[in-house]
């Protein structure tokens, strides 16, 4: 199987456990979102996959073989803590980074030309990195991550610091790489980005894997307990219901409201009540799917 597999991976730094018994699988042609609050152990997990750190317990395999120096050449990495050699020209810099991945200048030079053009950096390729803006440097770092045509691409907060136009541009490229059958690992704490991009999700907090599965499965696992209402007329019984603890107002305005239904309370009874109320015109009654952000917060809080 041509995928990245983590099995019971644990890493400790002194008394701190940065990753505890983490297991998941990232498949080719899919984007796996590694989610978690700051300090959750995302970066430690990524560093172990990138063979910068070695796990204390457990094993990490790519294509069935334990990761090591060999897999580093099959892997492109855009870390969150990123930089470039300040005084080195972009072209030279990328050629060096490609050479470290085992790509000969023969092959890397045309590839660099392609990517530099694709990301609109032609005029900058003969300049030193320190002359580039932060956003441009980030695009250079992105090129470095994909230059060796790696099977596994790890992107840690790739959009932070990018303007919307460039973010969108990068998203398209990532989607293209996914279509090419690469394994893509996308780490972020920006839920809306993960929701847009990822096929699979791993939620990490305090070094532990709290949730994993496809995005759709995870969303299904969480009940649709949020209700959006739009109506014309009076519905005083809603207040009574809140006092009884059947529901809880999240938002309220003239046209309607968003409420969270209590576990024991069934939405059908509310619908019947609304329909039975005279002089009340119901426009909208929608059970909303929980956002990833809500799932994230609820899961972390429930720990």
């Amino acid at each position: 199987m041509d995928s990245l597999v983590l099995q019971g991976v644990t890493k400790r730094f002194g008394k701190v456990t940065a990753a505890q018994d983490v297991s998941f699988e990232a498949k080719p042609g899919r984007i796996l979102g590694l989610l978690g609050p700051n300090g959750a152990g995302k970066t430690t997990t990524i560093r172990m996959i990138a063979n910068i750190l070695t796990p204390d317990i457990g094993r990490i395999t790519l294509n069935g073989h334990v990761v090591g120096p060999w897999s580093q050449e099959q892997m492109g990495y855009l870390p969150e803590e990123r930089g470039l050699y300040k005084k080195v020209k972009i072209n030279d810099q990328l050629r060096y980074l490609a050479a470290l991945k085992g790509v000969h200048a023969r092959e890397s030079v045309p590839r660099i030309a392609y990517w530099v053009k694709r990301l609109g950096l032609q005029q900058w390729s003969a300049r030193k990195a320190q002359e580039l803006s932060k956003g441009m440097q980030q695009k250079v770092q992105f090129i470095a991550a994909v230059l060796s045509n790696p099977r596994l691409i790890i992107l840690d907060e790739p959009f932070s610091g990018l303007d919307p136009v460039n973010s969108e541009f990068l998203r398209e490229i990532v989607a293209e790489l996914k279509a090419n059958g690469r394994i893509i690992l996308f780490a972020s704490h920006r839920m809306e980005q993960v929701e847009q991009l990822c096929d699979d999700i791993c939620l990490i907090a305090d070094g532990k894997l709290l949730l994993k599965g496809t995005l759709r499965d995870i969303k299904r696992r969480f009940k649709r307990d949020k209700l959006a209402l739009e109506f014309d007329g009076e519905a005083p019984f809603l207040n009574a219901m809140e006092e009884k603890g059947d529901l809880h107002f999240l938002e309220r305005n003239e046209d309607g409201c968003i409420v969270r239904l209590a576990e024991h309370f069934h939405s059908r009874s509310l619908l019947e009540r609304l329909l039975a109320t005279p002089d009340l015109e119901l426009y909208r009654f929608e059970l909303l799917q929980p956002s990833l952000n809500e799932i994230f917060i609820r899961t972390v809080e429930s720990q």
Partner: peptide, 17 residues
């Protein structure tokens, strides 16, 4: 010190020991 001060270090050590 260069790789660490320029923060390019993580890209580098993901390619070389």
């Amino acid at each position: 010190m260069e790789e660490r001060t320029t923060r390019v270090v993580e890209i580098i050590v993901s390619s070389v020991r």
